[in-house]
Amino acid sequence: MWKFILRRFLVMIPQLFLLSLIVFMMAKAMPGDALSGQEINPRANPAELDRIREELGLNDPWYQQYARWATNAVQGDFGISYTHKTPVTDVIEDRLWNTVFLAFVTLIFTYMLAIPLGILSGRYNDTWIDKSVTGYSYLGFGTPIFIFALIMLFIFGFALDWFPSGGSVDSKVEEGTLAYFVSKINHVILPALSTALIATTSTIQYLRNEIIDNKIKDYVRTARSKGVPESNVYSRHILRNSFLPIAAFLGYEITGLIGGSVIIETIFSYPGLGQLFLSSVSLRDFSVVTAIVMMTGFATLLGTLLSDIILSAVDPRIRIE
């Protein structure tokens, strides 16, 4: 098991290297740089801008820039953000915890909705319960998240004013107090719920289909032939088997949420990685952009590994040595 995990980590090194190369080149391929915005500033001296470019190494060939960046990156130094004027790691750190918090709450909401609805829908398939759950799923599939999130924001953030419409915490509360924590929760509910209500539909349908598939399996008939009551046929046999792929999917789900937070964080002006990513792209803040993409890439690889580990833990047929 530990050997397997170690091996997977070793395989990650060339993967991350390739990713970094591509990311770096793509970031450089974007027109302009962090100083381009200054060119239309009448008070900025073009000669001075060129001097700064030279000083920052922005005029060097890409491979020299890459080598410089990569050497520092492996030492945990992703450089200084051009726009924030602070180390990239500092810029990212605050945002990262916000995003992880949002992802965590979203995940809880997603499964809180998906598990009961999926079970009801699968167990009582083709009844009105199933039809309404499936109807909701179709709506969820068809609704673009950015429209839905705006509607949620309008209703609950503006019209009813139940939740704050932006930010991650109230600026007036003091850090470390209970009020601070309550405020954080208050800010995260609306974006988390908006994502969960849409994202949960695929999990519902997945679980529903798994249950429908499993309940006609031979081993279920065997369980019934033993005189196992129907409720236990579900809890001990059908559901355990149906949860396998869902549990294995958890790893991917986590990375999906971190990577997919761009839209939702922007709409709710939630200061997370996604929002930072988008603003860094428009400001040509390469050091931040590359660092975030590298992190997301790393998270994806970790998620895959996590999924494999979960699957081997819950399914005795899959054992990793």
């Binding site: 031979d218 008939r221 065997t222 005189g227 196992v228 009551p229 046999h237 396998l244 819950v314």
Partner: peptide, 23 residues
Amino acid sequence: NKVRGKELGMIFQEPLTALNPLM
């Protein structure tokens, strides 16, 4: 359910699929 398993037992054809893979 009190009769099944206790008074009447059943053996199925395909013993791999007839057993729960997770138990």
